[in-house]
Write a protein that binds this DNA or RNA. Structure first.
Lengths: 352, 352
DNA sequence: CAGGATTTCCTGGACGTCCGGGAAATCCTG
DNA sequence: CAGGATTTCCCGGACGTCCAGGAAATCCTG
């Protein structure tokens, strides 16, 4: 039970006084150093529980030089892609006694700069940069201080800088071949913002996979989106202006695909009867769409796990001399937004 | 420009030495105390910039007794309701020089307990509890320490405990009257988990508003959901078993409504032709649905703002003696998931 | 130029914790 | 029971910063 004691000096000294031992003994007790007399330890513990004493992390951090905080930089928490990353990252962090300092730069360099400053001031032990290819200059500050970093896709090979390389090709190839198997030939691609390394890579993979199976890509069927739903709608509107419609659209991410679906709904285009749609990311929302979205999965949970362990092994000095590399696969998950290509003459009816 | 200097002791002492002043002067300089000679100040600043020095927050916290951290407890980050709260809360916090310690108890008391412990260890200056009516026992620990708290809906009137009271009635009344105006009479309600204070209140408001305009509520049309999409699907399946279908469904939150829409899609029930659906929360996803979901808005941004400022005025000792109260309105936003009630004769057929 | 009033700076301690070195207590051995 | 080897504990200092109080330098006034 917690006592009524409320006086300010609820510190290790107070505990020591009440347990009639020195502060050092209290310290060793709560840190479970074995060389402390069990009887004393019990006395200490009982006082600790009675007073509801919790050690002061900042004091600990100060003397140990370890803040036990990791920074986590994402581009936008409200982007449905990120919450699960945050969730999983936080879970694991807590399990390992770490706290996380979360920041969402809303693609704003100034916010990025501020957040880097915050992280340095709090003396984070490492930072996971989940912005997918925005190689930010401000991060130089962190590198100079030898703060371990982990990037996705883009990141220099350097000491204390790890990288998670994503195998976009695998999932995209599956998607393209899936569409091809369904007799699709005019396959459109809506890209992300091309300054994003990951978005550029996805496009290249698409082109590569099409070529691989001998399908030609009409350049007019490649349009640029911005990874938002609105961008997806706009991009798809452009596609609608084409003399010959594509029969399938592959999107650089799920939000784009959702925009496409929305636009289709407005236009009375039925998915998958008239058009097949494939997304990328497999955000949770994808399975909630009507129809549920076929998409290429890139496990957010796994990504978070990799990022955390990359940082953890850096701080535990198990680091590779020149930055470790981790790999994450992507793969197609089939749902209901893809179907047989409509024949050019007569549109086949959806069979139940 | 940052120097190549990388030695560990990058502290206030190092700056003092290089600027040939005492540490106190450096401290006062970076804290912008006016009583420092401008010439010295410039010398200090130039050294600070040159070395890229950032003061150590934990040392500051230790001596000042202020961690400049607020805790933020949400039920689930992956629940689309919360990311925007987190986003806005974080924004304002940073503007005020605060950091946030985020925790999502996944409705797990043990996780809640751990997170409270983490917060106490980091000596948070206040905690916003955004779990909507889970009055948690573990929070006693925080109250005992006089840590300012802010709750939504539920929370004792006590010193250092503020409350945000949500006016559910306003929005729900608008929704009910909107449906009534569209000739709906058999209106169903899918509740949330009833141990949640906010969910129970929403249900009561619904009943009240129906009675208010002389509509009777068939008890069979009140079914319990759990605020998830799956729960919404199950609940709606129950409604489908009724001899007479409702013509409209009001849901305790948007995810539930999305579940209903999904089930309708499977059953070939067209929204809004055969059934009108209204959600609650106005999460961003609501406008992405097909058709876009009519829902009752409870501004997440405003909620976050209120919560932050409640804590801020507590730490600034502008606190009301017995806990302040804040109020947040709700109101209907019309989209496309509601329409005229279908005539009573023709029941919607399953279209295959 | 003396004397006091200000301004401006520095010294020394404190915040809460942990660590190294050494002192005291305990045990074992002969 | 003496002597040494362990175990178990305490004292003093340190982490990086801020603050109180006092010393030094500067200014003003008569």
């Amino acid at each position: 039970m917690l006592a009524q004691y409320c006086g300010p000096p609820m510190d290790i000294r107070e505990i020591a006084k009440r347990a009639k031992v020195s502060t050092a003994t209290v310290s060793r007790t709560i840190n479970r150093v074995p060389s402390v007399n069990p009887q004393l330890a019990r006395r200490v513990w009982s006082v600790v529980e009675e007073l509801g004493y919790y050690p002061n992390t900042q004091a600990r951090a100060l003397v140990s030089g370890k803040s036990r905080i990791f920074g986590l930089i994402v581009s936008e928490i409200t982007n449905p892609f990120f919450p699960e990353i945050v969730q999983v990252f936080e879970n694991i962090a807590v399990q390992h006694g770490y706290e996380i300092l979360l920041t969402s730069t809303v693609h704003d360099p100034k916010r990025m700069e501020i957040s880097v400053r915050r992280m340095i001031e709090r003396r984070v032990e490492g930072v996971a940069v989940m912005t997918f290819g925005m190689e930010e200059l401000v991060l130089e500050d962190l590198k100079l201080r030898n703060v371990p970093l982990v990037f996705v896709d883009v990141g220099p090979s350097r000491a204390h800088v790890s990288n998670i390389r994503i195998d976009y090709l695998h999932g995209i190839r599956q998607a393209v071949q899936h569409l091809a198997a369904l007799r699709h030939e005019r396959i459109a691609f809506i890209t992300g913002p091309l300054q994003l390394r990951s978005a550029a890579t996805r496009q290249q993979c698409f082109l590569h996979c099409m070529e691989e199976i001998g399908l030609t890509v009409d350049p007019k069927l490649i349009v640029e989106g911005d990874h938002t739903m609105e961008g997806g709608m706009v991009a798809f509107s452009q596609l609608l202006k084409q003399p010959v419609m594509p029969t399938a659209v592959l999107c650089s991410n799920d939000m784009t695909a959702i925009g496409v679906m929305r636009r289709c709904h407005e236009e009375g285009i039925l998915i998958p009867r008239d058009l097949s749609v494939v997304g990328f990311d497999d955000i949770r929302m994808a399975q909630f769409m009507l129809p549920p979205l076929t998409t290429i999965q890139m496990s957010q949970a796994e990504l978070a796990r990799l990022a955390f362990h990359a940082l953890l092994s850096e701080v535990q000095n198990e680091s590779a001399p020149n930055g470790a590399e981790y790999f994450l696969k992507t793969s197609l998950v089939l749902r209901e937004s893809t179907g047989l290509a409509p024949s050019r003459k007569s549109r086949p009816e959806k069979s139940g």
